[in-house]
Write a protein that binds this DNA or RNA. Structure first.
Length: 516
RNA sequence: CGCGGGGUGGAGCAGCCCGGUAGCUCGCGAGGCUCAUAACCUCGAGGUCGCAGGUUCAAAUCCUGCCCCCGCAACCA
């Protein structure tokens, strides 16, 4: 029986405009969400922004605005981009939302405190008075601050710490066997090994708060005026605050984006929970988050889906190198159509691995796969059919086009091997182009001609469905041209000739225009 | 001896877990077709599978050592 699926991405840090790394994650999660819906699961898909912290505070200072003004200006850039990428999210959480987010965070903090898992300890670090913050080895050159050319001084401050070090063994069990009957799977598996070796090196307690004097832009620690919550309790909690998990808003969490989805506890306790995140924050999601939930008496999520990073033309993206790819430019290149980019990311970046964004490659892929193979196939079949009046004949038996495609496809997507799924759609496309060349329908007449073309149209229907999670906009256009409606689920649609009432195709139009 | 990933024809990758003719995409060369978006189809050239040992009848695939590249390295989201 399908269980409800709750899928989330990491929440983005809005101190700058979104880049391709953000896009990779959202597209990955969106393909999963769309696949879950197609296979018939109830789905809730949540994204959001992590808006507190010193970086935002400082960026705002530099720009001479309040932190709130800064994030209010930048967050819409993210929301707007994801709309244009057809990211089908149901809920967007903002950590600055004092009505929807804060109460859950404060409640979780109190539960951890009540469980005796929070303790004041002194934190000693290297503090640069120029930067007005703690610095790390990375920030130093010859023991001096890169920015201010002076040695930082050792400073101690009181913080609340989350006693993670006590959970070494439990967390190890959680990832290998079970912790109180619960297990947490990490995809891909090599990340699991990495996490386990981290645990073996020993876990330290985690600083969960900062004195107000060094961090003011955040959620206040309950019952302590002098402390502000540090990122972990604030940001990670978004996954349950967006559900109003503790019922502090009487379940009245607005789900503005897609009202058909309700809020509430059933999306956590009774659902399969998947967190899609980047490899940089894997350790926090694999260790701190489950420990927090456990000690607060909340069940642990089912799996972590960890993606890699994107390089740009083979090099690490960085502002100083100036090779940061702005998603808007890519959308612009393809006339505002997000599908070439979605296709590129799904096809070129195997889930879990690092990938590369290359302009040359996205253009080549667009031309060869989308335009020449797919778009041209649809066009030639429809043009030939419409010359005969557009009527379809019996689809007969599968002329060995589909074969085991659907079985393999379902198996691949259910195991998050998305690139394999999209590859199967392309293989079917190639098979159609081969068949059309062998059968030469343009040289045939009457029923025999229509029969071949009808089978090709049927194959194209399957191709549209196979592509639906990846490039939904294109699939919808294909189905429309074929004279079909877009199905909500795949149920009853994957057999050869499943559309019994399908008698006629629509008008053909160019699917992918040449790019300038 | 910090941790992890990778090194396969010009480029980008799959194959490695479960050893047995080295595969895909792009590019290149030749041919075919003409329904179609100068698109499509077929064939071909091109590789000591990072290096060195070992196991085996047989290794890209297992084992050992080494070299090179890329991330991460603790609160830096």
């Amino acid at each position: 029986m399908p269980s409800p699926q709750y899928i989330t991405t990491a929440i983005d840090y809005p101190n700058a405009a979104p880049h391709m790394g953000h896009v990779l994650e959202k597209v990955l999660a969106d393909v999963c969400a769309r696949w879950f819906r197609l296979r018939g699961d109830k789905v809730r898909f949540q994204i959001g922004t992590d808006e507190h912290g010193v970086k935002v505070q400082r960026t705002a200072e530099v720009e001479g605005v309040t932190p709130k003004e800064l994030v209010d200006r930048i967050v819409p850039l993210y929301k707007d981009l994801y709309k244009r990428l057809d990211i089908s999210y149901d809920k967007f959480v903002r950590t600055t939302d004092q009505k929807e987010h804060w109460p859950t965070v404060i409640e979780l903090w109190k539960k951890l405190d009540a469980a005796g898992k929070l303790e004041k300890q002194s934190y000693t670090g290297l503090y640069c008075s120029g930067c007005e913050r703690f610095v790390t080895k990375k920030d130093l050159e010859d023991g001096k601050c890169v920015n201010h050319k002076k040695a930082p001084e050792e400073v101690s401050e009181e913080n609340y710490f989350f006693l993670l070090s006590q959970d070494n063994e439990n967390l190890k069990k959680l990832l290998t066997k079970k912790w109180d009957g619960e297990e947490y799977r990490i995809v891909p598996s090599f990340r699991e090994k990495e996490t386990l070796s981290l645990i073996d090196q020993g876990l330290d307690d985690v600083s969960f708060s900062r004195p107000k004097s060094s961090l003011s832009w955040g959620i206040p620690v309950p019952d302590d005026d002098e402390q502000t919550m540090y990122v972990w309790c604030d940001a990670l909690t978004n996954y349950i605050s967006g559900l109003d998990y503790f019922g502090l808003n009487n379940g009245e969490v607005a789900c503005h984006e897609r009202p058909r989805i309700g809020g509430g506890v059933e999306w956590w306790d009774d659902a399969e929970v998947t967190h899609v995140i980047g490899k940089d924050i894997a350790r926090f999601h694999a260790l701190i988050w489950p420990a927090m939930l456990k000690h607060a008496g909340v069940r642990i999520p089912n799996r972590l889906l960890i993606h890699g990073f994107l390089t740009s033309e083979g090099e690490k993206m960085s502002k100083s190198v100036g090779n940061v790819v702005v998603p808007d430019k890519v959308l612009e290149k393809f006339g505002g159509n997000c599908d070439p980019l979605r296709f590129y990311l799904s096809h070129e970046v195997p889930v879990g691995r690092d990938g590369d964004f290359s302009w040359d490659r996205i253009v080549k892929l667009y031309d060869s796969k989308l335009r020449n193979d797919l778009g041209n196939l649809l066009n030639r079949v429809l043009v030939l059919l419409n010359k005969e009046g557009g009527k379809l004949s019996d689809f007969g038996k599968d002329p060995k086009l589909l074969g085991k495609t659907w079985d393999e496809y379902k198996e691949a997507l259910n195991n998050f091997r998305l690139e394999e799924g999209i590859g199967l759609a392309l293989e079917l496309t190639t098979a159609c182009n081969q068949l059309i060349d062998i059968k030469k329908p343009w040289a045939l007449e009457g029923e025999e001609k229509v029969q071949i073309l009808s089978q090709l149209a049927e194959a194209l229907r399957h191709i549209s469905l196979l592509l639906l999670p990846f490039i939904p906009r294109t699939s919808e256009r294909m189905l429309k041209q074929l004279g079909l409606k877009v199905p909500q689920t795949l149920e009853g649609k994957t057999e050869w000739g499943a559309e019994k009432g399908w008698k006629k195709v629509g008008e053909s139009e160019i699917l992918f225009e040449p790019i300038i």
